[in-house]
Design a protein around this nucleic acid. Structure first.
Lengths: 351, 351
DNA sequence: ATGAAAGCGCTAACAA
DNA sequence: TTGTTAGCGCTTTCAT
C-alpha cells in the first residue's frame, strides 16, 4: 500500500477528495459535484474548488470511481492477431470510435487460438471492461452457448451465428460476387479462387464458405461452369498462403486468366508468386483481392479489391456495445450489416 | 446502479464474497484467502469454499480489488498509429509479453498528434493503468519536462532523450550503417536515401536524423561523397511518401544505383514507383528498407531490410515497466538497447 | 486456522 | 445551493 495515514504526514501522500474539500473549505460532495460537472453550484464555490484542485494537484482515483459507478469506460476488443493488417486497421477504427465516446480499449490478441477465444469470453464476467467486441476466428456456431451471459457483447463476422448477441457483419457474399462479376465483365473465363472451398459448406458460417458462394453465384449467373480444380484451398489466409497458391496453380498446368484471392494478403502473395513464374498482372492474369488494406494501393501492381468499409463496421460495433452498456444488458441477437464496394486499380482495371 | 439491496431479492443480484461466505458458512476473509491462494487453510474449509464458489457462480469484482490493492494489472501502450504495420507488430509483441506476466494492455493511438501524446501522458495520473509505454513521434527532447511525474513509464525510441524515464531503443545509427554498407559492398556508388535529412540535425533526437547519420557514416568510411541531392526528404514515412520520392528522384534526372528507404513502407512505395518508370529492382536499382515487417518477405521483389528485433524491444519495455510497478515508482532514465541486424532478400541480394 | 472489522476513494441519496 | 453519510466489494491487519 502506498497510501499513508493521517498520522504520517512525512510521506508524500496521495491527494484525495477529502484533502481537496478541506483545502477549499467545502464538502467532498461539492468537490464531486464539481468534478462531474453537475449544475446548481455558485460561482464562488466553483472557484474555490478549482483553486484547491489546482493547489493540491488532485487526480481522481479511477478505481474508486469504477467501484462506485459499476462502470470502467473500458471496452475489450478481441481480435485474432494485430499483425494481420486487416485487424490492425479494424482495431484502429475501433479505438477511434471508442475514443469519440470517451471509452478506452483493452486489446486482446487471441492468436487464432480457440482456447484463447473461449478464455477471453469466459473472463469477461470479471469485467474490468464494460463490454466485449470479439472477432472470432476459431469459434463456430456450435460454440454459441459459450457466449451465454448477460454482459454487453458484439460479435464481428459471421462465424458465431446463433450466438445471442448482436452481430456486425459485411455481406461477404455480395463482395465476392462483385469481385467475380468484375472479372467476368473484363472477359475472364477461367477464374481461380484462392482460399476458397472446393466443396460447398452448407452451414455457411465462415467467410471462406460465403465468399466462395458469392464467387459461384457470379459464375452461375454468367453461365460459366464451376471448376473445383480452380479452387485453391489454404490453411490460413496469409500472403505466404497466397504465394504457395500461385505455385500450386502454376504447377498444375491449369489454364486460368484471373485469380480472385479471398483477402488482400493472399492477393499480394499471389502477385508475388505469379511474377516468379514470369506472368504479368494484369496482362496475363488479372488479380482481385478482398479487404482493401491501406497498402494495397501501393503494391506492385496496385490491387483491385473489395472495400469492406471498416470504419462503418467499427462504428456499428461501438455504437451497439455502448447502447448495451447503457441499457445494462446484452442486446438481442440481431445483425448489423456494413456496406461493401469494389475498388478498381491496376491489378484488374475497370473495363 | 445494477446492484440490488438486501431487501430486494427479486432482482437477479450480483454475487459478492459475502454471499459466498454465507453459502459456505465461513467468513469473507476466508473466501478472500482462498481466492488469493494464501496458505494455512484446512482442506475442509477449502472444499466448502470451492463448493460455494461453484454453486453461487461467483466472479470477483475487479474494480473493488483494484481499489483495495491500488493496482489494475493494466498497462497503457501509446503508439502513433496501429495502421502503420511497424506499430501493429510492436503492439502485438507488447500484448504477448504483457500477457505472459498477467497484464492486460489498453492501446491508445495518438495519431501522430502532439497534443494527443501530451494528453495521454497527462492523463496517466488518473491511472486506470499501472504504467505507460509510449512511443512518441511528435514529442521531442524539449518536451521532456512533460514527462515529469512518478508513475511507471517507458519511452520507446530516441525522441525523448532527457526524459527522466527508462528508454528502450534500437541502434538506428548501426542499422542505417549496416544497410548502407551492404549496398556499398554490392557495388553501389550513388545511394539515394528516402525519408532522410539533407542537413545534419545535431540534436540527433529523431530516427530520421540518426538513420541519416548512419548512412553518412557508411559513405564516409567507404570514401564516398555525401550528395544532398540524393536525400529525399518526406513529410511522413508512408508508402505514399515512398512512391512520391521515387517520382522525385526520376524527375530530377539524377544518377542513382540504389535507394535506402528509412523504413519498409517507404521502400514498398519506392519499388512501386520505380516500376512505374520501367526500372527493375534490383537489376537497375537496389532497394533496402528498415523495419523488417512481416509482409516485406512477400513484396515484389521481396525486400532486403534491417530487422529491429521487435520482440526484444517489447520484452525489455514490459520487463522495465513491471519492475517499476513493483518498485512503486518511475525508474531511472537509463537506456536499454535491443539488437539489430541486416536481412538480405531479392531487392538487394547478398554479394 | 479462522473471523471481525476497518477502511481503500468515490458517488449519490437525502437533508438541511 | 451545499453538506452528511452510507455504502460499492474487496483486502488486510489484528484478534481469537
Amino acid at each position: 500500500m502506498r497510501q499513508n495515514t493521517a498520522k504520517n504526514d512525512a510521506v508524500k501522500s496521495t491527494v484525495t477528495m477529502v484533502d481537496v474539500a478541506r483545502e477549499a473549505g467545502v464538502s467532498v460532495a461539492s468537490v464531486s459535484n464539481y468534478l462531474n460537472k453537475r449544475p446548481y453550484m455558485s460561482d464562488q464555490l466553483r472557484r474555490r474548488i478549482a483553486k484547491a484542485l489546482e493547489e493540491t494537484g488532485y487526480q481522481v482515483n479511477i478505481s474508486a470511481r469504477n467501484l462506485r459507478s459499476g462502470r470502467t469506460r473500458l471496452l475489450k476488443l478481441a481480435v485474432p492477431n494485430l499483425r494481420q493488417l486487416y485487424f490492425a486497421e479494424l482495431a484502429e477504427d475501433v479505438l477511434t470510435e471508442a475514443r469519440k465516446r470517451g471509452y478506452g480499449v483493452i486489446v486482446e490478441s487471441t492468436t487464432n487460438d480457440r482456447d484463447r477465444e473461449i478464455a477471453t469470453i469466459r473472463s469477461m464476467g470479471e469485467h474490468a471492461a464494460d463490454g466485449l467486441i470479439i472477432s472470432p476466428l476459431a469459434l463456430g456456431s456450435s460454440d454459441a452457448a459459450l457466449l451465454d451471459g448477460d454482459f454487453p457483447m458484439v460479435v464481428l463476422g459471421e462465424s458465431m451465428f446463433g450466438a445471442r448477441a448482436p452481430h456486425v457483419m459485411i455481406s461477404n457474399r455480395v463482395g465476392a460476387y462483385l469481385a467475380t462479376q468484375h472479372l467476368i465483365e473484363a472477359g475472364c473465363r477461367r477464374i481461380a479462387v484462392v482460399g476458397g472451398l472446393k466443396e460447398p459448406d452448407h452451414a455457411m458460417t465462415t467467410s471462406r464458405a460465403i465468399r466462395t458462394r458469392g464467387y459461384r453465384d457470379a459464375l452461375y449467373e454468367a453461365g460459366l461452369p464451376f471448376d473445383p480444380d480452380l479452387v485453391i484451398e489454404t490453411e490460413e489466409w496469409t500472403s505466404f498462403d497466397g504465394s504457395a497458391a500461385a505455385s500450386t496453380l502454376m504447377d498444375s498446368n491449369l489454364q486460368f486468366d484471373a485469380v480472385f484471392a479471398l483477402n488482400d494478403l493472399m492477393a499480394w502473395g499471389v502477385m508475388h508468386g505469379l511474377r516468379d513464374f514470369g506472368l504479368m498482372v494484369p496482362d496475363d492474369v488479372r488479380v482481385v483481392g478482398f479487404d482493401d488494406l491501406d497498402e494495397s494501393r501501393v503494391t506492385t501492381p496496385s490491387l483491385t479489391t473489395i472495400d469492406p468499409h471498416r470504419p462503418d463496421i467499427a462504428r456499428l460495433a461501438v455504437e451497439s456495445i455502448i447502447a448495451q452498456i447503457e441499457a445494462g444488458s446484452r442486446g438481442a441477437g440481431d445483425t448489423l450489416v456494413a456496406p461493401i464496394s469494389l475498388v478498381c486499380r491496376e491489378s484488374s482495371p475497370a473495363v
